[in-house]
């Protein structure tokens, strides 16, 4: 789990061009969307869907399904550990 969390942080920073952030600066429980957290938007969510498919073979059918999964890095990591196919 911890390993997936740190992997995800690096991959998300890279895929979403979060230039001013480092893996250390993101807490696994910080909300990804909304003004309180990282402030990601709908295109970022779609990029995370691509990232999960590319790296872990996970297919999310739509963004609505992704909503719960994408609460924070920890919730994504949990979903990845349960559903990964590669």
């Amino acid at each position: 789990m911890e390993e997936i969390i740190s992997q995800l942080k690096v991959k998300i920073i890279e895929a979403l061009n979060l230039e001013e952030m480092t893996p250390e600066s993101i807490d696994a429980t910080t909300p990804l969307f909304g003004e309180e957290g990282l402030g990601l938007d709908s295109i970022d969510a779609l990029e995370i869907i691509v990232l999960l498919e590319k790296n872990y073979g996970i297919r999310l059918a739509n963004a609505a399904e992704g909503k719960k999964v994408f609460t924070n890095i920890e919730s994504i990591a949990r979903y990845v550990s349960e559903h990964r196919t590669k």
Binding site: L16, I43, D44, L46, E47, V50, E53, K54
Partner: peptide, 9 residues
């Protein structure tokens, strides 16, 4: 096959 949604926009 991994088209990037953000680049497409």
């Amino acid at each position: 096959f991994y088209p990037s949604p953000s680049i497409f926009v």
